[in-house]
Amino acid sequence: MFGLDLERLLDVEDEYRRLEDYQGSMPRWCSGCGDNAILTAVQRLLRDEGIPPEKAVFVSGIGCSSRFPHYMNAYGFHGVHGRALPIAQGIKIRRPDLHVFVNMGDGDCFSIGSAHWIHAIHYNINMLAIVHDNRIYGLTKKQVSPTSPKGLKTNTTPYGSYIEGLNPLTVTLGVTNVSFVAQAVEWIPDLLYAVIRQAFHHRGFSFVRVLQRCPTYLPDIFDPFINDPQNILILTHESGLQLDESLAKIYRNRVEHDPSDIHRAREIASDESKAVVGILYRNERVDVYDEIRRPKRVTTLEMRKAVLERELDKFAVNPVGGDNHNEKEA
């Protein structure tokens, strides 16, 4: 064990063990905004996992929740509306060393970015995507969202919205190559943390939808779930969530669900009368795009030159008397 200084080693271990190490600017969300709980859960996760802040990248789109990267002490990419996923994929594709997180709102992911949402599930690139779903547009001041319930009065639907809200869980579970789907609610922080942590440890694309209150534009939307814990359906499993005694006393509506059972997952997701919390689906055996497409070896300058020369040979025109390499081969 030459050269190993035990004290230094402990230093490294302890270096990133404080929540403050992961805190960026002071959040400017409204007081009571559910985004704060998600932020805390993620900061806790990074601390508990001991992730160096420089190895974490938070990518977001546009919207209230997309301010998220500014509030982390990590690398952050606050890009354009709806396009966080392709940007995150580009970051991950040649940087397996980076932990990539994506934070999107319901408008960002399920509306303007919906094509990318479907294809991110399909590509299945290693990253953790969290959708902060408050079922309303907040930053642009109260417009209907794809997940708004039917009849919701907003500034663009003053007489009530016209169609039933989209169910993101069933859509996600319907995509080929789906790898990890979970849901949490921000007002049960321990379970939110537990779900996000499981998502983080998943190999592949982890999709977590978090039901999140907007105190300004839709404060009461989740009241039925908050006021009566019986309306929360907890999915438990030895490979999923396990409740401690105190939570188990409050949340009695629980069901054993094996996350490898996609048919049951779809069934559970289809019933929106309860707010589901837990791991709906997990499958690490599906194709993982970034792993499949990882280079087999490091390319040196010499290798690059050799490939270029070989290709140029195919198109070579040599002075009379010369010969072409490919013609020799033929």
């Binding site: 890009g79 396009r83 940007i87 994929q89 970051i91 594709i93 040649r94 940087r95 980076l98 294809h119």
Partner: peptide, 14 residues
Amino acid sequence: AAVGFAVGASYAGK
């Protein structure tokens, strides 16, 4: 998505 992917990769140094 194609240009977003390229921007992401470039941001990450590639």
